[in-house]
Design a protein around this nucleic acid. Sequence first.
RNA 1: GGCGCGGUAGCCAAGUGGUAAGGCACGGGUCUGCAAAACCCUUAUUCGUCGGUUCGAUUCCGACCCGCGCCUCCA
Length: 466
Amino acid sequence: MGLRFYNTLTQSVEDFVPANGNEVRMYTCGPTVYNFVHIGNLRTFTFQDILRRWLQYRGYQLNHVMNITDVDDKIIRNASKEGKSLQEYTEVYTQAFLEDTGKMRLQRPERMVKATEHITEMVDAIQTLAHNGFTYESEGSTYYRISKFPEYGKLSHIHFDGMKAGARVDVDEYDKESAQDFVLWKAKKPGEVSWDTAIGDGRPGWHIECSVMAMKYLGSTLDIHAGGIDLVFPHHENEIAQSEAISGKPFAKYWLHSEHLNIDMQKMSKSLGNFYTLRDLVGMGYSPEALRYTLAAVPYRKKLNFTMEGLAGSQTSIDRLRNYKLRLETDKLGAGANAEFTKRAADALAAFETALDDDLNTAEALAAVFEYVRDTNSAMDSGAFLADNAKEALAFLEKFDAVFDVLKPSVAEGALGDAEIDAKVAERTAAKKARNFQLADQIRNELLELGVVIEDTKDGVRWKRK
RNA sequence: GGCGCGGUAGCCAAGUGGUAAGGCACGGGUCUGCAAAACCCUUAUUCGUCGGUUCGAUUCCGACCCGCGCCUCCA
């Protein structure tokens, strides 16, 4: 079976077949730049990164657009509170976003686009919607009339025919004809940033930017649209309503949504004091790779229960893989290949690929890796694992890392260069040979303080940076 | 009230109508001048509860209990 994804639109797992051969046109909802990204945001972006990498692994050519929302209520409020312009304020968090996602090793989309740089296109789109009869004006704002779009609710599978008892309704939005109608263009309020346009002086509603930018750069029907599960309603539902009312075509074929994470079984929130950004965790001594691994290891449609114990465990898991790689590179193995392990390498790779093809089952993919690592570690001990098998293992690790990208340490190299460390290690080895253990231990401790760990193995001494 | 997700070893977590992956932690061991590091082994007769279907269910069906999400801004 080939690559397949769970599609929110159809609520089923479907074979993935993009419209144009190998090209994948993908749009993902990026950050609203009013703060540093927290680990919940990063779960979604890490999922999107795994998705990107797996599509590439499978030979697809990506054309991925991500938006940056740089105008919205929170941004306007916070910017004015700090006495900054919109640009000054959002620039800080846009840069921080790029830095943080870089540390997380998230690939950059082919194109990142800002809402404020597409005001003209949004106005055009709203005028087209007006022309097609999907809008109405009220007190200077323009609204989308949901009743004109019968398929409204098809993504979130919410039925709006007849309000249910208990459903909450915005009572104060009296200027809307219907509670589900949403704003396309908000009339200017005193003191707020605004654009004076053909449809009035104001600013865009939240949803229109994504419809406009997605269609501008990717055409009227996307292959994949992805985001966090909370965006299904209303954001993505509204994007569909807007886009399809403009183009008359399906907006996206596959809708992929990632689940949220909890912290120690509870929702992450500032009031509970369990709210973390990448910067917080790095400040506590955790590596970005440990977070990356933690977020990637649980399949994206499962709620992820984030714990500090789990984060530390991820670092240990990564270390184990790094040690394994180091061992493959340094152990003195017999020449040739053991056919048994050639087969196991192929089997492990097949299991790895099958798991990721199945709606990105990262947990199962990792199981395939670790099972192989354990088997071959034992075989290296027994001598059954030969030099060419090690090459196969390294090739497998390379494929693993093309997706998970956790093997390369991101810690600074520290004060010592490789040559200096080699010299120190040689000095210690000589001391050991002379049975001057006091000097040997002293050198070992010195190196340890500089973040270098010495390992005595049956094939000699090797070292690594901690 | 509507829609949806989940409850598998101390923790994280995969999975299937045929008898429970993997990771972390704990414990044990190998190696070692001692250590460290590394590596290996061990850990669920059992998959929320109660019924049903079946030769057989953790896996299907029903009921119930518990936790969570969305329906309003939210990754």
